[in-house]
Write a protein that binds this DNA or RNA. Structure first.
Lengths: 230, 230
DNA sequence: TCAAAAGTGTTTCGCCTACACCCATGT
DNA sequence: ACATGGGTGTAGGCGAAACACTTTTGA
């Protein structure tokens, strides 16, 4: 095996959080090095002997002290040989979701600062991180249609209207409340709780919860989750 | 930037070809090293300063002398730290299609031998190459439903029934000839040629061709290619 | 009593499904 | 004339789309 390969392997993560009816991405501020003070996606070089997945979890802990709720590989960026000006680095990028219970960012140990940045207001970032975020944004939009990932952005118990607003916000389109509700409930993996939630004025909302086991069972029986909008 | 990372970056490709109503995967026989004589997916380490995509094209040339028709990134395998017993290597895997005009494999320079292996008869391969092939097979099945990739497995001009058989073969299900034809033609990106094709007995088949420009134009106008089967 | 958000049914329309016979050629 | 594969139309059902008023609470 040739031994002079000089290419580094990094992982980067686009972590989405949803609150106040808006979608946010986690950014960290570099503490050291050439990119010091710049805001970037959390991530870093993979350690020797470490799996890619573990590297992502480690970096998220080290840089933001955050626990994620859903993780999947997004894409590997390596067609721009100079995407990192220090060395040839390929980035195995991941896509993660955090629910509101885990939104609090701890004072990071490996980053100078950490913040949630509104997806509609992402500044120009170093490397190809804007491209990575765009790719992730497309992915989340696509997945909302055919995978139950919206629930990973909401608390365990949520009013139905929150789910509806989440879809409307992320997909950037209006949706018909009645048809949406009918369709989602028809699958049978959403359960009604024995609680209601009051928020200021307006009628209190019935709380619902997503049942992942029911989902898996239904899927095994041939259910195909898919939701479209007029 | 830390400089002691000892992880290699390889690319591997699952190249699909379709002929005689069957789907095949390109395998190469290793010429050197610990894995000498074993059949594996074409691929190898990325060169310094080389993009991932170029690495794939280069390896396919060196090992099989083949020109591909469609290429997309599949997945990056790096969660089994010992997937290669020589060193920690991550594999950025690709998914490629070859049409029948390019099926001929040249006597490879960097491989001992090269062959098309029926997808339904893949032997146990070294590394995690069986897993990679499975992933690619799932991907091609999924993509057939919502992207016009079937045409990259057929010659430029083809009888409609070939397309139908391709779908039936790859998806491993029967499809209704009339409904399939109606649906595909309704999109408007398939054009009738002024030729017919005779093959032995039976009525000669009208030839059709896929018009990629028309496809793009229609897609821009909101067309959404999707085909399902009862 | 008004504002604010939650909850709920019906009709229409278009698409997907199911399904069987005739056509052109070679042997 | 028979075997082989190519080519075509229609009716019914089901799910998606469109659409507006009532209910419950807080101020």
């Amino acid at each position: 095996m040739q031994n002079n390969q000089n290419i580094k392997v990094a992982v980067d993560a686009v972590v989405f959080g949803y609150h106040n009816n808006a979608l946010y991405v986690l950014l960290v501020q570099q503490k050291y090095g050439v990119y010091k003070d710049q805001w970037v996606l959390p991530g870093g070089l993979v350690h020797n002997g470490e799996t890619l997945t573990n590297a992502v979890h480690r970096e998220l802990q080290e840089e933001a002290g955050i626990n994620i709720n859903y993780l999947e590989q997004l894409y590997t960026f390596g067609d721009d040989v100079e995407r990192d000006k220090r060395n040839q680095v390929i980035s195995v990028s991941y896509f993660a979701l955090v629910n509101p219970d885990n939104l609090k960012l701890s004072a990071a140990t490996d980053a100078q600062d950490v913040k949630w940045q509104n997806i509609n207001n992402i500044p120009k970032l170093p490397f190809d991180h804007n491209l990575i975020i765009d790719t992730a944004f497309k992915r989340i939009k696509a997945k909302l249609h055919y995978q139950p990932i919206g629930f990973d952005l909401l608390p365990k118990k949520f009013p139905f209207s929150d789910l509806e607003h989440l879809y409307a916000t992320i997909l950037e389109q209006e949706i018909d409340r009645r048809n949406f509700r009918k369709k989602i409930l028809s699958f049978g993996f959403i359960k009604k709780c024995n609680e209601k939630q009051k928020n200021g004025s307006g009628r209190p909302a019935q709380l619902y919860t997503f049942d992942p086991n029911k989902y898996k069972a239904l899927e095994k029986n041939g259910m195909h989750f898919e939701i479209k909008f007029a």
